[in-house]
Computed example of a mutant assay.
Amino acid sequence: MSQTAHIPSHRKPRRSASKLALRAGVAGGVLGTIAVAGAAGPANAEPVTETIEMPTLGSLDVGTNLASAVAASAEASQQEALDQSLQSLEQTAFQKASQEAKKAKAEADRKAAAERAEKARLKAEKERQEAAEAAERASRTSTRTQLASDSSNDGGSSSSSSDSGSRASDSGSRSEAPSGSAASIVAFARAQVGDAYISGSTGPNAWDCSGLVQAAYRAAGIDLPRISYQQSSRGSSVSLSDLQPGDILYWGSRSGSYHVAIYVGGGKYVGAQNSSTGVVERSLDWDPPSGAVRIL
């Protein structure tokens, strides 16, 4: 027979603690019964036939403790599962709140950047308008200075200029009242007299020179460019002695004018002059224009 063959073990199986306690309780009850019987009478007395069974308190305690342990274990498992569920919910809520906070911050940053860009654009536009207004004032001052110098150096030229202005006034005085598109243009321009002058403005309560001319022509259903030199480049040139209501007056050269206005008849024009005067109606003699064009 091989030495490595399986040899049955002679070790006694281990008894569980509950079984040992049960047997101990039974044994204790039996011994207690014998002790009581021995103390009840003499040695020759008849044997006692009634026995008293003692309760097996050990087994009851073990069962109670086991049930309590099982209940405690179940409660602990349930509490642990509940804690894990709450932790999972808290983690999910935190992640959602974090994502929403990041999204809100990104949106706030985008709006802030857009506001900064808009402010920068408005600032640049304002600076451009102020520069254009300053250049316009300087150019008009230079033109008036040159005209005054020419007049002092050449009396004949001055007389000719005065005659030209007078003829323009006479022509306007003799002209009939405007009608049709011209009447709409003149009525719109005169309705804005007293409004403020703001460079770059196109109404309804503030204008610059080309913005007013463009809006007046639009009232008659005619589209014009936005810039003064583009407006004076339209239509055909007309003499200042042959003006009609609705004609566009310009200052400077026709293709490089720096100021425009609308002739309204009677030797007068309406224009958005500058920030000091706003929109005014003035005589041609107050600030003689360089030329005129007719669109109608």
Rank of each mutant, 00 (worst) to 15 (best):
Q3V: 01
R15S: 12
G156Q: 11
G28H: 12
R167W: 04
R234H: 01
C209W: 04
D242I: 00
A35P: 04
V279G: 05
V279L: 07
A148M: 11
S237K: 06
D242E: 02
D242K: 00
I198M: 08
R121F: 13
P245M: 02
E50Y: 12
L249R: 01
A39Q: 11
A45M: 12
G221M: 04
T4D: 15
D83Q: 07
E127F: 06
N274V: 02
R226G: 02
T92A: 15
S290C: 07
S73P: 00
H6C: 00
P178A: 05
P8D: 10
T145L: 14
D170A: 05
H6W: 09
G278T: 03
I222T: 09
M54W: 07
M54E: 08
R137T: 08
A104N: 08
S199P: 02
L22M: 09
A35E: 09
P245R: 01
E281G: 06
A191Y: 05
I7V: 11
Y258M: 03
E46N: 11
F94R: 14
Q244R: 07
P178M: 04
P8E: 12
L224P: 01
K105R: 09
A37T: 11
S164V: 05
A114H: 07
Q78V: 07
V70R: 11
S73D: 10
S16V: 08
R144K: 12
S171Q: 03
I222H: 08
A27Q: 13
D223V: 10
Q91A: 15
R254H: 03
A72I: 00
D109G: 05
A67M: 09
A292W: 00
S162I: 15
T4E: 15
E136H: 11
N274W: 04
A117Y: 09
E281P: 05
S59R: 09
A39E: 13
V280F: 05
E107Q: 11
T145R: 14
A168G: 11
S184K: 15
S77N: 10
S85H: 13
S142Q: 10
S161H: 07
W251K: 02
A220T: 01
G200N: 03
A108L: 12
Y229N: 13
G194M: 06
R294P: 04
V48H: 10
R234M: 12
A261G: 15
G165M: 10
A219Q: 13
A112Q: 13
N205Q: 12
K96R: 14
Q129D: 13
S164Y: 02
R128T: 08
D61L: 15
D163I: 08
I248K: 03
E46K: 10
A67V: 06
R190N: 06
D61P: 00
L212M: 11
D195M: 05
Q231K: 06
G28C: 06
L89S: 13
G246K: 02
S159H: 04
A69Q: 11
G41Y: 07
T277D: 15
L60V: 09
I185S: 01
A261Y: 00
D195V: 01
L284R: 01
A182Q: 04
A261R: 04
Q91D: 15
I198T: 10
G165L: 06
V193N: 03
G221R: 08
E107S: 11
